[in-house]
Amino acid sequence: MEENTVIKVKNLTKQFGAFTAVDGISFEVKKGEIFGFLGANGAGKTTAMRMLTGLSYPTAGEATIAGFDIYRDTEKIKQEIGYMSQKFSLYEDLTVGENIRFYGGIYGLSDELLETRTEAILKNLELENERKTLVASLPLGWKQKLAFSVAVLHRPQIVFLDEPTGGVDPITRRKFWELIYQSAEEGITIFVTTHYMDEAEYCDRVSIMVDGRIDALDTPAQLKVQLDAVDMDEVFLKLARKATRADG
């Protein structure tokens, strides 16, 4: 069972001066799980994500990501995770092929491996004829699928998705979640944040942060029972309304 837990977090804390942004959070995520990481603006999600992805050291607490310690092994963690957000994903003024090559280079993939994986991505996304097209001129839906494929190019164990579907049309948003499901079935662990509460329903388990703490963590079905709510929107409202600190 032990090796099936890819994220282990215990009493993780981050303070900025007198302000406790993340206040002793603890949770575990299993391999292949789709884990929804929700919270109001300013609840501490981004700060927590930065610690989990090795970009910022905690003030206190422990965590391992893919078996690596977040204090000592931040560089090893980066090899085992992928990251994608709506705000930053691909270079608009590079072509489809150049973007894949660029990320492949960063992750140190050999030329041979990079070529095989590039072919596979282009075929899977039906972008074979767009290899030399600038990313800027791709439709948003294609851009997004490409961004996800690039985020998992180096076959990470875990992929962190930070509001991956913001501003996206309702069909593209759903097609993107189908890609997430497909990857989870292939064993990649998905750690995702979103402001769309219907998307919270698609997660295996959901945690909700309020004022730096995790106030609820369970399956969507259980959370609805616990909070006597009809849907995840109501669950979220009931918990987030308790927040006392101003958003960040």
């Binding site: 919270g39 109001a40 402001h195 409202l237 987030a240 958003d247």
Partner: peptide, 12 residues
Amino acid sequence: EPTTGVDAVSRK
């Protein structure tokens, strides 16, 4: 787009 990227509570 005043509510883009804003959480469900603040949007309401």
